[in-house]
Design a protein around this nucleic acid. Structure first.
Lengths: 231, 231
DNA sequence: CCCTGTGAAATCCTTCACAGCC
DNA sequence: GGCTGTGAAGGATTTCACAGGG
């Protein structure tokens, strides 16, 4: 969903900048989560086959993916869970907490702010913004909801933060514009509209109705198939 | 994210079963939404260029995608908004409402149940289930929360329904197993774990931490690039 | 043996560019 | 002239299969 599909290197890095494919980057978080779970259970070494199973990918794909990061496994043995974890965290820039600003504190914004999976996975909610005066001042998971007008201040106070757009479709573009103008260059949006942003801004979009519609297609294809067989 | 990548034809359909690529199917909902918006504004005809802009894809991609459904455009003119809409709705099986069962009525389940984008886009929430006795009986958006034990009954009462897994990671596999055993063959999960399901079950996974981590990678790549330039 | 790392093949997806129709 | 529909080219991603180290 995020804009492009080009290989993403580190521009300006001299010499052999291994270019990690976008498809690989999208899977590294899956491996990371599986590794954390394994570490929690005390597992020290894991084979590509096992880790792939935990991550719901094929082992060949996993090995290819990891090969883009370098050779961190041992033949005949597998990968060190802690080593591999820290290599992936380094590669993805999860070594320190990233600030997250959530705009829109409706049901979804609440759910996000309260989602325990953020803190402890490299993220910290530093701002909750809403336009509704009735919600301002309300504490949600240790953070107090502030008025939308504070948007620029909050973003300025947290360089390199990620903006989350959890407002209705009608105001999503407007909010996106303000975030970008304030300096945000990574957006996660839940609004069911295409956001127009400058090229250098990364957007990822999560659309629940889209996910359900894709599932609907398969339900329907099954039905049509069954009818054809019966007919 | 959903299992495979194979072309999805209608098995058992005689003769030339056009196989629509998975990537195309994932984009049809975007076009559909744009078409609905255009229709609401009273637009009757749209070119691939315009519709592509509204959907944030390229016009060539859009035309290719639509060509898999057949030739519903007119050269020199464009596409009829209403015609194209109904063709896509047919193709995706959105001609009648699909029942949706949501398991887990925490913050996220609430957000989903209350999400206006479902009813009116081909879906109807027919069941809300939770294990917490304090939540049972509570009405959420016209549907009353029922105990988890009712799962099999609810699924049986709504053939071909989609199951939504909005429970904590620890119980996700268990819930998924029950849904599948009860007959559900399409799952949307928000739990940050890989669900093991039989081949014939379609799973789509939405993982907020994963989305943020992908954005984090880009933030970090930007930083590294800036440093390299500065150094 | 077991298991990783990786070229090479195969597949899938996107983009190009233009023939053909309005 | 404008615009769709589509082969063909070009990329990207996945899979294969095996060389090579432990």
């Amino acid at each position: 969903m995020a804009s492009s599909r080009r290989r993403i290197g580190v521009p300006g890095l001299r010499g052999s900048s291994r270019a990690v494919p976008a498809a690989t980057i999208a899977r590294l978080p899956l491996y990371l989560r599986a590794l954390v779970a394994l570490q929690d259970v005390g597992v020290q070494t894991v084979s590509s086959e096992q880790l792939a199973a935990e991550s719901a990918v094929t082992s060949a794909k996993l090995r290819k993916d990891l090969s883009y990061l370098g050779s961190y496994g041992r033949r005949g043995v597998g990968y060190s869970v802690v080593e591999l974890r820290s290599h992936i965290e380094d590669e993805m820039g999860l070594t320190r907490d990233l600030p997250v600003v959530i705009v829109g504190v409706g049901n979804l914004g609440h759910a996000l702010a309260g989602y325990g999976g953020l803190s402890g996975r490299g993220f910290r909610v530093v701002g909750l913004l809403d336009i509704d005066p009735r919600r301002i001042g309300e504490p949600v998971a240790d953070v107090v909801v502030r008025p939308l007008d504070d948007l620029e201040d909050v973003v300025a106070a947290h360089a390199g933060c990620i903006g989350v757009v959890a407002v209705p479709a009608a105001s999503a573009q407007q909010v996106s514009d303000r975030l970008v103008r304030a300096g945000v260059r990574s957006l996660l949006t839940f609004a069911p509209v295409a956001l127009a942003v400058p090229d250098e801004v990364q957007v990822r979009k999560v659309d629940l109705a889209v996910e359900l519609q894709i599932l609907a297609y398969h339900e329907q294809a099954r039905l049509a198939g069954a009818e054809a067989v019966a007919g």
